[in-house]
Write a protein that binds this DNA or RNA. Structure first.
Lengths: 223, 223
DNA sequence: GCGTTTCGATACGCCCCGTAGCGTAACTCA
DNA sequence: TGAGTTACGCTACGGGGCGTATCGAAACGC
């Protein structure tokens, strides 16, 4: 719709787009969300402030677009087991949240979005829904390996699979975000392993942080 | 230390404290984090703006104190099973996050805290550590019921128990926050039940959202 | 070329932040 | 009771950001 809407007149400068988003990210790194100002971003990008407002309604929308691309770096290499796949995506997501531009911006735009429907929709489209394929793909692989039961057939089964993927996504992403930003403790490989064990085997098996306790009761297969 | 420091002079008005924090919460409800201003809070509280700055260094620190008391309402009634306990605390926490003053403020102060060590410490002390007892208590009850294995003895066992409690806290709180604020979908009893099932039995058993699919393969005990 | 749209530049009104200065109020201690 | 100390209300202020308006120039399609 954006294509057919404006076929006439001077086209938007793609170079300006890139320069603005780059400037936004570097401003986030140096100043954080609170210190970032539209005037400063325009200055860094070598662009007039009006050019920013021609593209985005406000600071939040612009920052969402600037940060969203960072999440596209997330990948899901097939490591041969559900355990390894989960552990690796947890660590990759945590590394992403360590980056100052992501860390300071993500929570801020989510906070703004609690009172801004358009912004909430933009976050969902640009970040949340976009990364959900990681869970879908990981689930599919695990089912192919026999590590997870197959989805029930029919439309109800597909809906149930969707709900399961949504749940897993919220649990994994939420746990990492909460650990990293709210509890403010670092996500170590040991922690990632413990989280993975909890997800795979459930609470009763989550005694030790890595591997079941010696002589423990419920230590299932792990390798 | 705050007591012995200032024993002389006019004491701080406790009434002003309450009026300010009440005004802060009501301003959050009506205006949200972004719309809340120090001048407006002072006006609502019937207090001079300088009185606010005499107590808190900035907006974020004040809001943390204003919101922290909301979390003290969380309780953990003994419902007789780990499943019921988890489900109830999930729903209670979600209901808390539904309240506009909590919803808009929590993410905002966490975002600010990514670049403010003092604020991060205040959040941990006033909110995170304060609510962790819910997990510790729930775990203790479940162990007494035999639903969870007991902690290994000795200081290593206690440390492992602490790590387990931290992990569970991050997983539960993180999942609810992510579902409610990032994914922006409501936390229903059905979802709470599915999350609880995932926590209790692990991913392989998380086929259906509530109850195993008819003729499903891995439906463990539930009642 | 003509209409349309973008761009840079500048200026502006509005509002908020956080602090300073002052006289007054409340409390402790001698 | 009076002196010392701290909190309070009030007002005013400098600094800075937001988002908009306006203008002439530039870059496109037709």
């Amino acid at each position: 719709m954006a294509d057919s809407a404006r076929r006439t007149g001077r086209p938007r400068s793609a170079a300006a787009d890139r320069a603005i988003l780059d400037a936004t990210r570097s401003a986030l790194v140096e100043l954080g969300w609170g210190g970032l100002t539209m005037g400063d971003v325009a200055l860094r990008a070598g662009v007039a402030k009006t050019t920013l407002y021609r593209r985005w309604a406000n600071k939040s929308e612009m920052v969402v677009d600037a940060v969203a691309v960072l999440f596209d770096e997330l990948e899901l290499p097939d490591l041969g087991s559900l355990r390894a796949d989960v552990e690796s995506v947890v660590l990759a997501f945590a590394a992403l949240l360590e980056r100052p531009e992501a860390k300071t911006a993500l929570m801020a735009v989510v906070a703004e979005a609690t009172r801004d429907d358009a912004l909430r929709a933009r976050i969902r489209a640009a970040i949340v829904e976009r990364q959900k394929h990681l869970v879908v793909e990981g689930r599919r692989r695990a089912q192919a390996r026999g590590e997870l039961p197959p989805d029930p057939p029919g439309p109800e089964g597909a809906a149930a699979a969707d709900r399961a993927a949504d749940l897993i996504f919220d649990v994994i992403a939420g746990a990492v975000v909460h650990r990293s930003l709210v509890s403010a403790e670092s996500v170590t490989p040991v922690w990632a392993r413990a989280l993975t064990a909890l997800l795979l085997h459930g609470l009763p098996s989550a005694a030790g942080p890595a591997g079941p306790a010696p002589g423990g009761s419920g230590g299932p297969v792990d390798a």
